[in-house]
Design a binder for these strands. Sequence first.
DNA 1: TAGATTGTTAATCGATTAACAATC
DNA 2: TAGATTGTTAATCGATTAACAATC
Lengths: 217, 217
Amino acid sequence: MYTGRKISSAVIKRLPRYYRYLGDLLDNDITRISSKELSEKMNITASQIRQDLNNFGGFGQQGYGYNVEYLYNEIKKILSLDRTYHLIVVGGGNIGQALVNYTNFEKRGFVITAIFDVNPRLIGMTIRGVEVYDVDRMEEFVKHNKVDVAILTLPRSQASEVAEKLASWGVPGLWNFSHVDLHLPPTTKVENVHLTDSLMTLLYKINEDAAPSSHEE
Amino acid sequence: MYTGRKISSAVIKRLPRYYRYLGDLLDNDITRISSKELSEKMNITASQIRQDLNNFGGFGQQGYGYNVEYLYNEIKKILSLDRTYHLIVVGGGNIGQALVNYTNFEKRGFVITAIFDVNPRLIGMTIRGVEVYDVDRMEEFVKHNKVDVAILTLPRSQASEVAEKLASWGVPGLWNFSHVDLHLPPTTKVENVHLTDSLMTLLYKINEDAAPSSHEE
DNA sequence: TAGATTGTTAATCGATTAACAATC
DNA sequence: TAGATTGTTAATCGATTAACAATC
């Protein structure tokens, strides 16, 4: 039953992981699984799995567990993965190009339709069949083509300004690899990938076991 | 005062963000800031800032606030960013190469010393001065050179096996871009960057406002 | 000194886990 | 039917926020 109440982001962030594990089970021709079995594979509690899933509906059956294929498809629907998305890359540098070259995206229905950059040496080039355009032509492009997500892989200094423009043109999602926090109207959603922050978190973990250094007393 | 008690990961994940904002303040020649002012900039509560910082010590002063440069340097020490790290890239594909080309890393003291791959066309090549070696030579390299972090940018199918080897050779940190969960001894820390999961989370957010589709009733 | 703001304790809120009746 | 396992309520745990005495 869909209730319309807001699902906590802690739950949402776990959905792709459920989806991945269910996909793996499906690949291994496993047709049914209980929350207990899945909890052991995923290293979380069975209770959490049942709670999470019941935010969206009762997908299981008492005494039986969950049908893997059915549950997989339900999560696919919840994540809205049952359609194609059109993405543009804004910033044709290293990471932008890497994402264009990442073939797995297409298999999942994520199609990159254009790349935008300011660098004259890049403009006009084609990367895996995707053309690089001058950033000046972005407004025109966004207004004439469906763009679900703009991938922001441009320098910190330009990211906010470009993001605000994209939001004003109605782009619903920004996948932000730039190292700034964006403040946008609620009609445009942002997901941040702050790689430097992620690496710093790892360095903390590496060092935490070791003897504390200078912040001890 | 360092107490040795475990800091929650929620706090740790916020530290890089504090560090970034303090760096920006420093760049703008702001010498002092109160938790209240910082909270407005960062869009979190002043209470949370004070709680977070007090996990590591009393860095402020009543009636004054925090000295920006001092606090910046303290967080730098907490994150152990006051030294150089040696990284290797395992998997010389798109994302691996993009990270090697990411010049900001070196400015922060993250030095990539080698790339490993199985592809004969890549082996022997040099990317931004970093040589690509056959994966067969990785054990030898890791045992003769200091490797703080291995960046895993290889296919899902090979990631677990390689990760276990790296752990057994004593590599303390794995920055995992492969789309699998790694299970390793506690001496090797893992930080995951699951890009596909991140994008899926964004797609959920884009769609959640819209009318619910098939999982309603 | 008076005002400002910390460090820290207490209250609240939300997320996770446990328990169990419902039921396949 | 008996056994298994869900969906869901209740209990616990942890993280966030509020409050305020301490103090610069």
